[in-house]
């Protein structure tokens, strides 16, 4: 085959170009620390990387949802613990009041009123600027005590409930929504379902004390026990919800680590390997340059001299 000058030049140029192209690719990988800098670098790996990134973002969101839910649940828990404490005090007072004189009973009635006031305050607890026990009516005070309740004769309800019976949920993973809140009705007044109305129970006890009705007072202890049990049941409900959520929280933490590790494997530059490749290409380039120079230069002209 005739080797012409343009042939030689073309061949050397091409080889140098390919070598430089390979080196540029590796250099890009080294400077961006990413093996894939555009989809066409490795379309399949890219598809997986994009999927994994979305999973990671979504997991983080679920984790935020869970934290928010936990915050509310914990606040409810605390409130209900306080309510429980109050009910225990009420019970002690009832036991005491069952066997006392009228004068002591009057002062006990006053104490009861204080406890009732406290309970109402607990029922109106706010968390993060929103009322905890109003259902989805979170911006208005859910429990308003009847102003006549301090007087002896009361007409109408002890407490008016301005909240609703709606619950709200949090999405804690791809398939699960969890109800977070207990409504005010659920916690404090289940009388429409045959359960206890905590406020009514306390108020009725107060009336009994003022009426000096020993038998009634003793009978009330049963009601108070019902109220305590209702509160404890609710307390447990919240505990269970918390458990479920926390379990998911842990699961996400583990999964996130795996996802990030997969992503790193797919898209990060393996510096060791890249450097070695770069060195190899550099050597190849140097050899090509050196050889190329020797291929192109000499011609007969160098040797003909004077004829």
């Amino acid at each position: 085959m005739r080797i012409t000058d343009s042939f030689r030049i073309r061949t050397v140029t091409e080889n140098l170009n390919s070598s430089r192209e390979r080196m540029t690719d590796i250099q890009e990988q080294l400077s961006t620390a990413k093996r894939i800098n555009r989809p066409s670098d490795d379309p399949e790996a890219m598809a997986n990387v994009l999927k994994l990134r979305t999973i990671l973002e979504t997991n983080h969101q679920f984790q935020r949802n869970i934290e928010d839910g936990l915050r509310i649940l914990t606040a409810q828990e605390t409130a209900m613990n306080d309510a429980y404490e109050i009910l225990m005090q009420v019970k002690e007072l009832a036991i005491e009041g069952a066997s006392d004189s009228i004068t002591v009973r009057e002062s006990l009635a006053d104490q009861l009123q204080m406890m009732l006031n406290n309970l109402v305050e607990i029922a109106n607890t706010k968390e993060n600027g929103k009322y905890l026990f109003g259902g989805t009516e979170t911006m208005d005070k859910p429990f308003q005590m009847n102003e006549n309740v301090v007087k002896f004769n009361l007409e109408g309800e002890v407490i008016d409930y301005y909240g609703n019976k709606k619950t709200f949920e949090r999405q804690i993973n791809e398939n699960t929504r969890v109800t977070i809140n207990l409504t005010g009705a659920e916690v404090f007044d289940q009388s429409d379902k045959g359960g206890s109305n905590l406020f009514q129970t306390i108020y009725d006890l107060k009336l009994d004390l003022l009426n000096d009705d020993s038998a009634a007072i003793s009978a009330k202890i049963e009601d108070i026990n019902d109220a305590v049990e209702q509160t404890l049941k609710n307390f447990l409900k919240i505990g269970t919800r918390k458990q479920l959520i926390v379990f998911n929280q842990d699961r996400f933490s583990t999964q996130n680590i795996q996802v990030q590790s997969s992503m790193s494997y797919l898209e990060d530059t393996d510096f060791g390997e890249a450097f070695i490749q770069f060195k190899a290409e550099e050597n190849a380039l140097n050899s090509a340059l050196s050889a190329g120079a020797r291929v192109i230069s000499p011609s007969l002209l160098d040797f003909l001299g004077a004829v």
Binding site: R2, I3, D5, S6, F7, R10, T11, S299, L300, L301
Partner: peptide, 20 residues
């Protein structure tokens, strides 16, 4: 490139040849 080289081989100028 193969085909172009082939073409070159036939029609290209080789300075060595021309000097001869």
């Amino acid at each position: 490139n193969q085909f172009q080289n082939l073409r070159d081989s036939t029609s290209g100028v080789s300075l060595d040849e021309e000097f001869i």
